[in-house]
Amino acid sequence: MKQRITQAFMVIMFMTIGLTAQARENEREISLTVENSKAVVLTLNHIEAGTKISLWDANGKLLFEDKADEATYGKVFNLQQLKKGELMLEIEDRQTLQLVPITVSDNAAKMKESAQKTYVKPIVRTKEGEMKVYLRDGHGDYTIRMLDKFQDVVYRESVVAGKGGIKRYDVSKLPSGTYNIQFTADGRSFYHTITLN
């Protein structure tokens, strides 16, 4: 009996190690290199097709925007034409928004890895008069707002940091129609649209 328990434990441990190794292998990789003091090469690996890539200046002005067609993405920028100072690289897919601060000088462009931030987007599902919001552990404080077709707020709630799991909402008494669900954290908003019949 003791041997079976030990064997079962070992199988579970090896499966966990294998899954962890696979997760690390598929983790998004970002690199930024300067070549010949002229070109800044941005490379992204292990991303999903449709991932949005954008570059913003310190004043919130969009400098560059593109979409990845496959799991690897590359872009070359002319260093002399890049705006100097603090820039923000945003990488957004269906599940996350990753913010990567970049400092650009006359002869260098460097990512500030310690200041990177990743937001995990909530998942919304509706069925039979109930709306379920799936939250991952580790999120910060955020506000949920539900707006009707006239952009009037029909529901609002503040969610405290770290309260993961599933939140359920009774939407059976709301009129039929389309509603926008807005999740806001640190001044960033994510949107979902639901239709109630």
Results as ranks from 00 to 15, higher is better:
residue 138 G to I: 02
residue 121 K to V: 05
residue 72 T to H: 10
residue 57 D to F: 10
residue 134 Y to H: 13
residue 125 R to G: 04
residue 126 T to E: 00
residue 60 G to E: 09
residue 112 K to S: 15
residue 33 T to V: 03
residue 31 S to T: 05
residue 146 M to K: 06
residue 113 E to L: 13
residue 91 I to L: 02
residue 21 A to T: 03
residue 84 K to Q: 14
residue 22 Q to G: 04
residue 6 T to H: 01
residue 193 T to G: 09
residue 90 E to Y: 01
residue 55 L to C: 11
residue 3 Q to P: 04
residue 150 F to W: 06
residue 96 T to V: 14
residue 134 Y to A: 12
residue 15 M to V: 14
residue 100 V to Q: 15
residue 85 G to N: 11
residue 181 I to W: 06
residue 18 G to V: 05
residue 88 M to S: 12
residue 86 E to W: 02
residue 46 H to W: 00
residue 59 N to L: 12
residue 53 I to T: 10
residue 177 G to Y: 11
residue 119 Y to D: 08
residue 111 M to G: 07
residue 187 G to L: 07
residue 149 K to V: 00
residue 99 L to P: 07
residue 50 G to E: 07
residue 152 D to W: 08
residue 124 V to I: 14
residue 177 G to V: 12
residue 197 N to C: 04
residue 156 R to V: 12
residue 180 N to Q: 14
residue 61 K to Y: 11
residue 69 D to F: 00
residue 112 K to L: 03
residue 105 S to V: 00
residue 115 A to L: 14
residue 73 Y to L: 01
residue 159 V to R: 11
residue 115 A to Q: 05
residue 99 L to S: 12
residue 176 S to R: 04
residue 145 R to G: 02
residue 124 V to N: 07
residue 188 R to T: 09
residue 14 F to A: 13
residue 7 Q to F: 14
residue 180 N to H: 10
residue 154 V to W: 02
residue 98 Q to R: 13
residue 141 D to M: 06
residue 132 K to C: 03
residue 5 I to H: 09
